[in-house]
Simulated scan of single mutants.
Amino acid sequence: MSILKDDTTSPEKQRHAVEHWATGPAVDGRVVGWAEDLDVSGAMHPFKRPGLGPWFSERADDWDVLAVWKLDRLSRKAGHFAEVFEWCQKNGKAIVSVTEGIDMSTPMGKMFAQIIAAFAEGELDTIRARALSGSAARKAKGVWIGGVEPYGYHFDRQEDGGKKLVQDETYAELFREITTRLRGDWTAYKIAHDLNKRGVPTWRDHLRITKGKSRGGFLGRRTPFGPSS
């Protein structure tokens, strides 16, 4: 499991470390397969990961030792780690962390592994808390958290790098026109037909145009808020 970032140890280096341990004279083993779950959250249970999961179910008879680069690559949740360890014990498997020198087939290795797993879970909780705190701070400042511009608004970039939503004067007025007509006797189809007839770009096309891109093509509104076809 790895979340790929600039400072992430590459999967190739991790694989090389595991292979060097497995084929070295101290072990004299062989690698029967690899499980690489790139950009998969450490909070996901190892049994459910697309790369690692099948090795516990479909291919459980193919291996004897689960060798990982570091224990936090296996799981950042102490509870999940304990379940994997229990499964390995019941099924005659061992877990080894090649860079931390932890062999969980030994009593000392089991103790260190449990301590490291607890710290890994604490680190995950800290990351989550920091992310939530950042989101809350941006909301308090009225800064847009993410996603495309909603109908009738555009982004106004702030000095600190954030973005606020500011009304688009043209489409804010158009939105008020649409809602007024809907409250009257205009149907959605009639409004869409009128906007197309007037050559008013859809909101998505308007965003393309303001960013210097070509329009998506024929207006093709199916509803007043529908995208271009």
Rank of each mutant, 00 (worst) to 15 (best):
A113P: 02
A113E: 07
A113W: 05
Q114R: 11
I115P: 01
I115L: 09
I115Y: 07
I116T: 09
I116L: 11
A117T: 05
A117M: 05
A118H: 02
A118L: 09
A118W: 03
F119W: 08
F119R: 00
F119V: 07
E121R: 00
E121W: 02
G122H: 07
E123R: 08
L124C: 10
L124M: 11
D125K: 13
D125G: 08
D125A: 11
D125R: 11
T126S: 15
T126K: 12
I127L: 14
I127N: 12
R130K: 12
R130W: 00
A131C: 07
L132A: 11
G134N: 11
G134P: 03
G134M: 04
G134D: 06
G134V: 04
A136F: 08
R138G: 05
R138Q: 11
K139D: 09
A140Q: 13
A140H: 03
K141Q: 12
K141V: 05
K141A: 14
G142H: 10
G142V: 04
G142D: 04
V143H: 14
V143F: 09
I145Y: 07
I145F: 06
G146P: 04
G147L: 04
G147A: 03
V148K: 14
V148P: 15
V148M: 12
V148E: 13
E149A: 15
E149N: 15
P150M: 01
P150R: 02
P150E: 04
Y151L: 12
Y153C: 13
Y153V: 07
Y153H: 13
F155V: 07
F155G: 08
F155I: 08
Q158V: 01
E159L: 10
E159Q: 12
E159A: 15
G162C: 03
K163V: 05
K164Y: 03
K164I: 00
L165N: 01
L165W: 01
V166G: 03
Q167M: 13
Q167I: 12
D168A: 01
D168Q: 03
D168N: 13
E169F: 00
E169C: 03
E169H: 12
T170K: 13
T170H: 11
T170Y: 13
T170D: 14
Y171R: 03
Y171C: 02
Y171I: 05
A172L: 02
E173W: 05
E173Y: 05
L174R: 03
L174K: 00
L174M: 05
L174G: 09
F175W: 04
F175E: 11
R176F: 00
E177L: 07
T180Q: 12
T180W: 04
T180E: 11
T180N: 10
L182A: 05
L182R: 10
L182K: 09
L182N: 04
R183Q: 10
G184L: 00
D185S: 14
D185P: 01
W186R: 08
W186Y: 13
W186A: 15
W186H: 14
T187L: 01
A188E: 15
A188D: 13
Y189I: 14
Y189H: 15
K190L: 08
K190V: 02
K190C: 03
